[in-house]
Computed example of a mutant assay.
Amino acid sequence: MSYMIAAIPMLLYTAALILGLTGTPLGFADQSLPPLAQWILFLSLGIQSLWAAFAHSMMRQRVADSIGWDASPFQLEIAGANLGIGLGAIAASMLGGPAAWAIFFVSAGFLWSAAATHLKDMFSEANFAINNAGPIFWWDLLTPLTLLIAIW
């Protein structure tokens, strides 16, 4: 079950990639955005970040164990950051280009620093727990990069 939950970020990213690259528009999105940007904002960045907010706030011990870390009150801060990014990304999908750029910078700063932290932990602590070195690591790297390419 833990592996299925750990796969959620990449499943949402893959679904957004497929829908976006096939040119399927997101009905309520700003149509000036390319479909790939619409879906990455809504599904991969928006819904996934809301899921992360829920998980970090409501299942702290389980999430910490899956990362290979101790549970910490800082997870509530991570939950809050994810909540803001998720809501901002969904709003950006509806608001268009300037909002998409703004949420790109916010999410890239957060997610790429998270990826760097996970990478450091892999090398310094040999921590290859599923939610340190698994799908979430790749999602942290690829989602902002794909959004950047889509809105460029």
Rank of each mutant, 00 (worst) to 15 (best):
M4C: 09
M4A: 15
I5S: 11
A6G: 12
A7K: 10
A7R: 08
I8S: 13
I8V: 15
P9D: 02
L11Q: 04
L19A: 11
G23R: 00
G23F: 00
T24A: 00
T24R: 00
L26P: 08
A29D: 04
Q31W: 00
S32M: 12
L33T: 09
L33I: 07
P34W: 00
A37L: 02
Q38I: 01
L45N: 12
A53N: 05
F54W: 15
A55P: 12
F74T: 12
Q75A: 04
A79K: 01
A81M: 10
A81D: 02
N82W: 05
G86E: 08
G86A: 08
L87H: 06
A92Y: 07
P98A: 11
A102R: 03
F105E: 12
V106F: 09
S107K: 05
A108M: 14
F110D: 01
W112Y: 05
A116K: 00
K120M: 11
D121N: 15
S124D: 15
S124E: 14
A129G: 14
N132V: 08
A133F: 06
G134D: 10
L141S: 05
L141T: 00
L145M: 13
T146H: 04
L147P: 12
I149N: 12
I149H: 11
I149V: 15
W152S: 15
